[in-house]
Design a binder for these strands. Structure first.
Lengths: 196, 196
DNA sequence: CGCGTGATTGAAACCCTTCAAGTTTAGTGG
DNA sequence: CCACTAAACTTGAAGGGTTTCAATCACGCG
């Protein structure tokens, strides 16, 4: 959990000793591609910090289609806050897209951390606000942009992910079909945006 | 600001005295329909509690189209948290759809309130999580639902608003054109959902 | 090597938008 | 309170973007 420690110390003033106390409430695991970390209907009791690899958060509609809410590559935290906070079954699923190394952050960790270190709450409040800012931006984009604009926005936001994530998952994130995405990419290539 | 006081005391254990101290950091105003409360580019220094009437939060795209992010009828709080928290110019606009009575909640109010009353932070954290839950639900809906499904979801969520809000604003909220919404409503009427 | 999944491509269908005209509603001033 | 004007809503026809379905190609994994 070295990377997670670095991450925390970069954003808060957590000391080595404080971290080693808190680490009792952490667990790391290596998971293969396509491993389920949170299932629909479960209560989300942990947050997941990605040290290596790539996770995703998504829902499945009544029609059986996947709607990807969020990707989480290295140094991202992913969780269903609503489920944790309101202690309700999650409507979302978290699983791994690549073989990954994940830190499981328990509720106890969060609690102890905010007792031990004042800057901790502050940082997690910042994360919350960042999260809201991000999905609000995405909302206003989904309301107005067509397939090409959405894809351009995606590669701007996640330059490296556009190569790592299978296209059908990018399509699901953008709210279009894989076929449409394929055509959009072809279009863009013709316009000499061959870099993407 | 009687309604706001009721609202707060319903959700926290704020005493009358505490509220009267805090009320120094509040301002109420009556605004006519179509009054601007927060303009694009401004830093959002206040939250707005709606005692009467109806506000909206929206952005304007490069193409000049309005994308409504949120409606705020009676007893709702609306603000651009990102702008407040990160002290950055807002990309959103807040204005009134109806003649409204609004409480302006200053940053000082928030600060003092959390000093005076412990339950306060807790409640506002709950609001934050509720907000995230709400826009995440909307995200997964925008990703997969067609015009009719979106409208049905809207009237389920805001039964009273579907009558108060002009259709072109509902259309903007749903990410469709007013013409499409008009047709969807006609379709639904034919299917005997005449109640809406 | 072969199988299966993902990516591509084509053609047809569909949903939604756009544009334009007509109708209704709401707001304003006499 | 009515008349007038502007804005909102409705409706139609045409067009565009996206989806759907189906077939083919490419690639990675067992």
């Amino acid at each position: 959990m070295e990377k997670f420690k670095e991450y925390l110390q970069h954003h808060t003033n957590l000391s080595n000793e404080q971290f080693s106390i808190l680490s009792n409430y952490l667990k790391t695991s290596k998971v293969k591609k396509q491993t389920l970390l949170l299932n629909q209907g479960e209560i989300c009791s942990h947050s997941f910090f990605v040290e290596e690899g790539l996770l995703r958060l998504y829902s499945i509609s009544d029609a059986g289609k996947e709607h990807i809410i969020q990707f989480a590559p290295e140094n991202w935290i992913v969780t269903d806050r609503s489920s944790t906070f309101f202690n309700q079954p999650s409507e979302f699923i978290i699983d791994s897209i690549e073989d990954s190394k994940v830190v499981h952050i328990s509720g106890e960790f969060m609690q102890k951390a905010s007792e031990i270190n004042a800057g901790f709450n502050q940082y997690f409040e910042k994360l919350l606000h960042n999260h809201i800012r991000h999905i609000q931006h995405r909302l206003s984009f989904l309301l107005g942009a067509n397939a090409e604009q959405r894809y351009m926005d995606f590669i701007k936001l996640y330059p490296d992910l556009s190569l790592r994530v299978p296209q059908l998952m990018i399509a699901s994130y953008l709210g279009i079909t894989p076929e449409s995405l394929s055509r959009v990419r072809k279009e863009l290539a013709n316009k000499n945006f061959k870099n993407f």
